[in-house]
Design a protein around this nucleic acid. Structure first.
Lengths: 357, 357
DNA sequence: TTGTAGGCGTTATCAT
DNA sequence: ATGATAACGCCTACAA
């Protein structure tokens, strides 16, 4: 056998007791010398000695032991279903998640993704939420229909809903004003002279946020006495490519009843709509205006560039983390609710209504 | 003060000792009665009593305490940079990640995502990898250039590279045969009669896997004595939309020297290339064939449907988890390396070379 | 400024 | 089949 030439710093049986011993101090002193919080209590000389020894010995504190002792892991869990990390289904997840990461770092918190197919069953999943790994949870929209949320709140687990809301005052959430945003978009289109503005959704009313967008559209149209045209596809239908044929159905209508503007509740739906219209021989925006929603990557490769409603992704992340940290810090406090505005981004896919002959 | 009507099951100070007391057994017995592993040692009667009490009391085991005791968290860390969860930059991450989730569940392991901007600095990030939260790590391609990998291996931390490789025999990895795949794709195009096959990459040689694809292309072309045409864009260039103008430059070449086939090293690059060609007035595949790579969602909305090279995403996930679990189980074992084949998916974006006049 | 001692919640060892 | 006891590695009163 050839002896291995280089020495491997094998995995740490080196605990704080070893550092303490080597530095000639007690474990308590070593602990303090190593932790920013209590560090100032220790004499500079010993502190540096301890830190040096720790480095030399290759000491790495155990988050587990520390957590057991402090009863806190400084870790926030982001809860979502596998679909969320699959870009097709939710292209803007990444942007949102980055906001969360930033904010968490600013609060000195770790973030871990809790991805699970079956968060719906509270009974089965509660143990995982209460095993102490995370101090609290950010629940992303996809999961919010589940009964897990009530279970969490009843258990007193700090919980914040992201991009969704609930009536329970104990629960914190941060949401965007989907209804207002949909109103604003509809009003913008109407303001361009469009009278027949159709709504196309690729996720029907399964999600609260889509539902609210539908309501906003209806309010705006009804207030002006304009006729509504709604194409409400289920997620499955839309995912199976249903947007395209649905839009072509609209395109086939006689010009007098064909919508001159399409308000799509996502950028990807808008992209699909544009390709359907174009293939059918209609020009965007000259013949038909198309608006999207989210301003996620769907708008990127589309031509003409999409008019859309931008969500304040980083602010959502920041607020969500703040709310959660609040709750973790004071477990018995009431929830706080935050509603964020969206921003209309006008690009090239919308324009004045064509002149009716 | 109004007294709250409903009782809230506040957060668990209920530990196993409470269950034990209430059930009239020792903590040891309670522990065994609750854990599948040792459960069989306990008398059925007591076992059921303990379990019932646990349920009634709302007992939830602390993963932290258990981890401290067992020195194992049954948790695998997936290491990546924030970009990876942003669909634009890496559309197929989700698919791959799902494979990992499946496999991990099958092995009884939890998965947590370790997302960090700065995994590159081993010194700063090693403490986080050695704090005991995870038993081992899956390193995704994006992070692999970092010196953190050597640090992990030297520290004896179970580590598996995913979609990448290293020479160090202590290190496990699972990778796809990018070189072979690129050869195969090139050969397929040449087999269709194409002589001027251009390579377009949107990530130049920064990544090993791209580098290998380039090598594969070169081998195939050189062997046949065909002239190479390479457009190697940096990631930044490509992300800034550089593919489009680059392809138009190719399109502007006189027909006699213009490539008749484009081999793009990603589906999104291929999509961009198609739109550039189409806008220029060239037909795909009649005038120019375009092939992609990955078979991620880039191919989905593109017309014509992309010919591409599919990566065995779920198998990558499965293998990676298996390798990691192996290492965690036997810390001192050598690494194991797995290379997986890709699959040529022929769709509509490629066809016979046009007849030269 | 430093040290002593006990506890965090669980599992494992070894008796009984 | 069950129980007493000692880890696991760290933190934090409280005492010195």
């Amino acid at each position: 056998m050839i002896e291995s030439g280089f020495k491997v710093e094998t995995r740490s049986p080196v605990a704080i007791r070893d550092v303490a011993a080597q530095a000639g101090v007690s474990r308590a002193t070593a602990s303090k010398a190593l932790n920013p919080a209590a560090m100032s209590v220790i004499a500079p000389a010993t502190r540096e000695r301890v830190q040096r020894v720790a480095r030399e010995l290759g000491y790495y504190p155990s988050a587990i032991a520390r957590g057991l002792s402090r009863k806190r892991m400084d870790t926030l869990g982001v809860v979502l279903t596998p679909g969320s990390v699959t870009p097709n289904e939710s292209p803007f997840f990444g942007i949102l998640f980055n906001g969360v990461l930033q904010a968490a770092a600013a609060h000195g918190q770790n973030v871990t993704l809790c991805v699970g197919e079956t968060w719906r069953g509270a009974a089965e999943s509660l143990p995982r939420f209460r095993d102490g790994r995370c101090d609290g949870f950010l629940i992303f929209y996809q999961t919010s229909e589940s009964d897990i949320i009530d279970a969490l709140v009843n258990s007193g687990v700090p919980t914040v809903l992201v991009d969704d809301r609930r009536d329970d005052p104990r629960l914190s959430w941060v949401d965007v004003d989907n209804r207002g945003a949909a109103r604003a978009m509809t009003e913008y289109l109407v303001g361009l002279g469009h009278r027949r503005v159709a709504l196309i959704t690729d996720n029907d009313a399964e999600s609260v946020y889509i539902e609210n967008r539908i309501v906003g559209y209806r309010e705006a149209m009804d207030e002006r006495g304009l006729p509504r045209q709604e194409v409400l596809l289920s997620f499955a239908e839309a995912f199976g490519g249903g947007i395209y044929p649905a839009v072509q159905n609209l395109a086939r209508l006689p010009a007098a009843s064909r919508p001159t503007a399409l308000f799509c509740t996502s950028d990807s739906a808008a992209a699909e709509a544009i390709s359907a219209l174009t293939d059918y021989g209609l020009r965007v925006p000259e013949d038909v205006s198309v608006a999207g929603f989210n301003d996620d990557n769907g708008g990127k490769d589309v031509k003409p560039a999409l008019t859309t409603m931008r969500q304040p992704y980083s602010r959502i992340g920041e607020e969500a983390v703040s709310l959660l940290v609040e709750q973790v810090g004071d477990i018995s406090r009431r929830g706080r609710q935050v509603m964020l505005p969206t921003e209309l981004i006008v690009r090239d896919s919308t324009g004045p209504a064509p002149i009716e002959k």
